[in-house]
Design a protein around this nucleic acid. Structure first.
Lengths: 143, 143
DNA sequence: TTGACAAGGTCTCAGATGGAGACCGATATG
DNA sequence: CATATCGGTCTCCATCTGAGACCTTGTCAA
């Protein structure tokens, strides 16, 4: 059975479970991890435990607010461990829990796919763009 | 090499590529697919081609606006094919492209993990909740 | 004849969400 | 004395999202 059929089977199985959005494990977890930063942070922590400021440095375009918020959400879900050293200034280190480590396997699958197929996606985007602009591309358009 | 080491190696490799956010394939694709609906729609379409109204029915909590918007984004990325039958009223069918089908493999990995570990995540959440409310549970606190 | 309804959207409006940047507290450093 | 560090929080504003009205064109029921 290929991945598509298997995925389709899972999907129709969820439908049979009724229209409860939070009851479905996949809906529930996808709602949590399917945001802009969660998976990225898990990938960063797969590289090894890191402190707050290090995470902020290696992911330059995350705001401190979202960094804090996302890490707390991951901690609440048991994927990340937050270790506070009560020095002054305090030193806080984040690392993957065993559960978080178990997530690295599917995440690696995602990452591998992304690296392998990015070229095709870019090509599709370029095609979509020219499809949109083509009707007017017969002549140069000022302004 | 386990998944964690492999993922960590990928991550530090991205860092070496400089601070360009859109240049990294993984950042780029995660920004697109890592929203509330994209992966869910891909899972739904893995079950077979579906029309707009059918998708709206099987995913009750997506608004028509986001459904239309997300499908167009997936189409622009070459993952989904939009087939318009010029009947009246028009009939529009969405299906996975070959590229979209290739994504079902990593997506299935994610889904499988979610179903297998959802119990642990729920347990962690319950623990986090009691940790928060415990300090004040000694006495009832009005207002 | 009038009305309702269908599909596949778009449009507008209001509320949730996210980023930018100020601020904090205590300490080490220049 | 001024400034920087660390790990955040707070406020403000821009963007994103959802709810719900509306559109077109033809068919069917009353």
């Amino acid at each position: 059975m290929d991945a598509r059929s298997a995925l389709g089977a899972r999907f129709s199985h969820w439908l049979a479970m009724g229209p409860d959005p939070g009851g479905c494990p996949v809906r529930n977890l996808l709602d949590r991890l399917g945001d802009r930063w969660s998976m990225l942070l898990l990938a960063a922590l797969a590289d090894g435990p890191k402190r707050f400021s290090v995470l902020a440095r290696v992911i330059p375009d995350i705001s401190r607010r979202m960094l804090s918020q996302t890490l707390r959400s991951l901690e609440a879900d048991g994927l990340v461990l937050r270790d506070v050293q009560p020095t002054v200034p305090p030193s806080v280190t984040y690392s993957l829990t065993a559960l978080g480590e178990s997530f690295t396997a599917p995440l690696l699958g995602l990452v591998t796919w992304a690296e392998a197929h990015f070229g095709l996606v870019q090509a599709a985007r370029a095609r979509a763009r020219t499809d949109l602009t083509d009707p007017g591309d017969l002549r140069a358009r000022p302004s």
